[in-house]
Each structure stands twice: as C-alpha cells, then as structure tokens.
C-alpha cells in the first residue's frame, strides 16, 4: 500500500506563476491593486444598496419581530461571524488546540 505520489513538487520561497489562460485571467484581476480597489468599492456599494433596499422588500412570512427590522439579516450575519471567530478561538486556545504530535 503506497501513498499516491503528487505530480508536482514545490520550491520554497518562489512565487508561483500562472501558465494557463484561465490562471492568467485570474492573475489579471487579483494581482492588480486597481481592480481590487474597484471590487472593494463594488462590495461596499452592494452592502449599502441591499441594506437600504431591504426596507422595501415585502415580507411573505413575517413571524418574529425581527423580521420587520430592515437589514436585520446583515447585522445578524456580521455579529454571527464575529461571535463564531472570537468564541471558537477562545475555546480552542483555552481547551482544544494541541501540538500536532499530541497523539503520537
């Protein structure tokens, strides 16, 4: 029983380069600070538009009180993310995370 041998090997300290057309296309987007700034701007605009637009969206099944708060889901998503990261990392460092050779 042999482990599958990876096709490629890595060279430490060397930056990888795109070789395929798709890779070069992505490289043009993500390696260009100008494009990234535009993406960021678009992202914030979308957040604003969605938050404001949520006021006008008709609620089909408004059951709980928070269903009427505009952009509630946005706030909830942000708070959830922060809670997940902070609490998980706290539990992890306090209790769960061990060195990689813990079981050896």
């Amino acid at each position: 029983m042999k482990e599958e041998v990876p096709y490629t090997e890595s060279v430490a300290g060397q930056k990888s380069k795109a070789t395929t057309p798709l890779g070069k296309f992505y490289e043009g987007i993500f390696e260009n600070p100008e494009t990234l700034r535009k993406v960021k701007k678009g992202f914030y605009i979308t957040l604003g538009v969605l938050s404001v637009g949520d006021i006008f969206v008709h609620r089909h099944h408004a059951v709980f009180f928070w269903d009427h708060i505009p952009a509630f889901m946005g706030a909830y998503g942000l708070i959830s993310t922060i809670l997940i990261i902070v609490i998980s990392k706290y539990i992890g460092h306090a209790l769960l995370m061990k060195k990689e050779d813990y079981y050896d």
Partner: peptide
C-alpha cells in the same frame, strides 16, 4: 425565490464576508 429570502440571504452572506475581512 421570494424577495425576502433572496435579499435576506444576500445580506447575511455579504456581511459575513465583511466580518471575515475585518477579522
């Protein structure tokens, strides 16, 4: 695909992304 589902889902996901890049 109702308006509140779609907008709610997008809001939740995009603000999660915001939180991700913040932290």
């Amino acid at each position: 695909y109702t308006g509140d589902h779609v907008v709610g889902a997008l809001l939740m996901l995009l603000f999660t992304a915001l939180g991700f890049f913040m932290l």
